[in-house]
């Protein structure tokens, strides 16, 4: 299924990504291990054991990425054309990552606004922002989504399920 040419270029990218991922895992394990020094008594044993395991696995990944001519692959011949991995394993180049990171930043901004201006105003602002970013220029459709989604969430969560959504300073009563 995969043409030889693309699979080779993908392999080298894979290897590079594996090296970076492995290094990140090693760093993460070391930092967390450092935090575990303040744990008292037996509370530390299990987390340290798990972190050492993660450290070792991370090192194996780095070494393999540096040495192996082939990307990490199961030896039993399971084909790599596992669709999920095919999509997911693509490179982390700047152009690919830009849009997802913009979405993530918008979600972060949304979460930050929740408690400041309240749920419904921040949801309207977020939806307006993300719909614009997703190039929805159909005003009627956009307004419809904003209105229907807010009503559904209001009905389902606030009215039926009795969830107190954040009110924020604008509408807060306490």
């Amino acid at each position: 299924m995969i043409s030889t040419k693309s699979s080779i270029s993908k392999q080298s990218r894979y290897r590079n990504a594996d090296g970076i991922a492995g290094s990140a895992i090693v760093a993460f394990a070391i930092i967390m291990f450092a935090f575990s020094f303040e744990f008292t008594g037996e509370a530390a044993i299990w987390p340290r054991a798990v972190l050492v395991l993660l450290l070792v696995l991370g090192i194996v990944l780095v070494v393999r990425a540096g040495r192996d001519p082939k990307p990490s692959q199961r030896t039993d011949g399971t084909p790599q054309h596992d669709d999920q991995h095919n999509i997911d394993g693509e490179s982390l180049s700047r152009t690919v990552v830009a849009a997802p990171m913009a979405v993530l930043l918008m979600v972060i901004g949304y979460a930050a606004l929740l408690e400041i201006i309240g749920f419904f105003p921040s949801t309207v602002a977020f939806l307006a922002g993300i719909l614009w970013y997703q190039r929805v220029r159909n005003i009627v459709a956009a307004l419809g989504i904003v209105l229907v989604l807010n009503l559904v969430i209001y009905y389902l969560f606030v009215f039926e399920l009795n969830v107190q959504l954040p009110t924020g300073i604008l509408f807060g009563e306490g």
Partner: peptide
């Protein structure tokens, strides 16, 4: 997707929040 994604994102946020009424869960 351009219509579905915003809806999923809002549900992600409100769903995470509603489990414990906790903004920390959203983070």
């Amino acid at each position: 997707t351009k219509y579905l994604a915003p809806v999923i994102l809002v549900l992600c946020v409100v769903g995470s929040y509603a489990i414990n009424n906790s903004i920390a869960d959203v983070w």
